[in-house]
Simulated scan of single mutants.
Amino acid sequence: MNMWFLGTGAGRPSKYRNVTAVALQLPEPTCSLLLFDAGEATQHQLMRTSLKLNKIEYIFITHLHGDHIYGLPGLLSSRSFDGGITPVQLFGPVGIRSYIETTFAISATQLDYELIIHELTGNEGVVFEDNRFKVEVAPLEHRVTCFGYRVTEQDQPGKLLVHKLKEYGIEAGPLYGALKRGQSVTSPSGLLIHTDDVTGPTYIGRVITVLGDTKPCDNAITLAKDADLLVHEATFAAGMEEKAHEFGHCTTAEAAETAVKANAKRLVMTHFSGRYSNEDLVQLEEEAGVHFSPVTAATDFLHIEIKRATHIE
């Protein structure tokens, strides 16, 4: 899995960074993209990476403030021109359907693929699940309805152990495929072989939490519990808690404290106020580092590989 930060600013674009968008790239063979928010010019930011617009299959909107959605209609439209024909599932607060449908109606925009819109009611729980991953959502505390998302990769079966297969006289072919699918097979000698007999340990699925704008709250901790990567807003520097809370935001120290309480493995802070230059990020990172490590203050186009956790013995 790979995480790309396409925009790390708050409120409006600045000369240092674009507004919010984060892309999570799933493993091979699909390499599908999960996009979290789409601030203005997100599609332009994508063009400056190796990511492909037509690989976006899931979009998760945290809330309906402009710096998180103004780039969405153009991105969805351009996906058709970029060869996107597979369906896209869009999740977001109530109102996201009206925003998209009204914009498309006024601009006479038509898509060459199916757009499936899910409006979230605010109830916690699983909103999507397939054989690759599941997504849980919970409301956060901001000035408008806002959500955080927890993506959990499904556990993956271990690799086939070739030396074990040879011991049972099983050669490469259809029986390999059956065992990979979890099916039991009969060896040439008539012995019933189960998948567990010839595979290595199961790999634990990775957990990635992406929070929208929020003040410190319990749901942020719940969503980030034991996450391999926590993406948390840090709009203001430590010591500016009163101002941060007035606008429904967190400071660097509060983002770090959430990571500590959640027992997250890694913290990446984003959504920085325009008052901070890229040079200021060193200080912001150090503020959070007093409470939690490892922590990174994200810059636009930061790319992070999220490695697999230790496998189940």
Rank of each mutant, 00 (worst) to 15 (best):
S107F: 01
D196V: 10
R48Y: 11
A309V: 09
A105C: 08
V295D: 04
D37N: 15
V137M: 12
L51V: 12
G177R: 06
S187V: 12
I85P: 06
V126E: 13
H245L: 13
H311N: 11
N2F: 03
R17G: 02
E119V: 02
L161H: 06
A138F: 01
A108S: 14
T222K: 13
S184M: 07
A227W: 01
V282C: 08
E257M: 13
S98Q: 07
I100A: 07
H245P: 00
A255H: 11
A41Q: 05
M1E: 04
Y70E: 11
P13M: 10
E246T: 09
V260H: 10
F5E: 08
D67H: 04
R181K: 08
E40Q: 15
L192D: 03
P29G: 05
M47I: 08
I208D: 05
K159N: 09
E153L: 10
E124R: 06
P216I: 12
Y99N: 01
H249I: 00
L115Q: 02
D112H: 11
P27Y: 05
H118M: 10
A259D: 08
R132L: 15
W4G: 02
A297T: 03
T121V: 13
G205M: 03
K265V: 04
R97G: 04
R48F: 13
F5C: 14
L120Q: 04
T258Y: 05
D300I: 06
Y176M: 10
Q156W: 03
G9I: 12
G9K: 06
V127S: 02
L76D: 00
Y276C: 07
H232L: 15
G274F: 07
H63C: 14
G248M: 00
D37L: 04
G125E: 09
T62G: 10
T222L: 12
V162T: 12
L267Y: 05
T20P: 00
L230Y: 08
E57M: 03
V94N: 00
I56D: 04
A255I: 13
